[in-house]
Design a protein around this nucleic acid. Structure first.
Ligand SMILES: [Mn+2]
Ligand SMILES: [Mn+2]
Ligand SMILES: [Zn+2]
Ligand SMILES: [Zn+2]
Lengths: 125, 125
DNA sequence: TTGTTATTGCAACCTTGTTGCTTTAATTAA
DNA sequence: TTAATTAAAGCAACAAGGTTGCAATAACAA
């Protein structure tokens, strides 16, 4: 929809997401980019990138928002259904590229699903 | 662990959860009980009931906390793994008593999982 | 270059939830 | 029954995450 200009700030954020299934929390991005841009800017860029289908967001069990790169989504169309994993020890959070089965629920029209798995990552086991 | 006294406030909240798979958001409880108790009290009672394995909590896609009755959990032991559903039209949110399959992830030790399904409920279809 | 429009910075604000501390109510001991 | 004990409740202040309005700036197109 709206044109997303490739500004210095946008590039900085896009680089972080490049070639990784690692997710970043909004809070961690604000901290990390503190010297380079305002927190309002961070959130607004994340919003735009999500609108464009370049990244997607999800919530963790504390209610924090996390962002990660999309693999195959388009503008306004987030279609890549996959679970996320958060390590309770190191906090690392990432996309899992596995198929998940969503149960059918009688009389309900299911449109989306978010699965968050928690435990220990390979580093922390 | 800690003794949970059955006070008027606790009873009031417990009654809401009785015999239903309907979930309540913290915010909605505070609003609903505004004339009967302080919001700090609401949150503290919810915490205690969750510690005791009487209710459980989960997050929705906006990061709000929801609470619902447990079916078979014990003090300090939330073992009832099931998905939740939130209607995008009316906002009603509830526990789904269906089995879900959590994928195995190589090198990861999975300890928990939360599945939130969204769509339209029977009333809103 | 200049004009147009998207993007950014900043301060102020909002919502959800938490904390410290005093007061009140429930339970237990006498 | 009354007094002592301790959990629970009320209140105000605070904190974290996130949003909004508006003026200033940077991209882009003409
Ligand atoms: Mn993902
Ligand atoms: Mn439930
Ligand atoms: Zn880890
Ligand atoms: Zn509905």
């Amino acid at each position: 929809m709206g044109i997303v200009r490739k500004t210095r700030s946008v590039d900085t954020i896009l680089e972080l997401f490049e070639d990784t299934d690692h997710a970043f929390s909004g809070v961690s991005l604000i901290e990390r980019l503190r010297d380079q841009m305002n927190k309002t800017t961070v959130y607004r860029i994340l919003d735009r990138l999500e609108d464009e289908g370049i990244i997607h967001s999800f919530q963790d069990q504390k209610g924090l928002t996390w962002y990660a790169k999309c693999q195959s989504c388009a503008s306004g169309q987030h279609t890549d259904l996959h679970p996320h994993f958060q390590c309770r020890s190191c906090g690392r959070t990432s996309c899992l590229h596995v198929k998940i089965t969503i149960p059918l629920i009688r009389n309900h029209q299911i449109e989306g699903a978010e699965l968050l798995m928690t435990g220990l990552c390979d580093q922390c086991t």
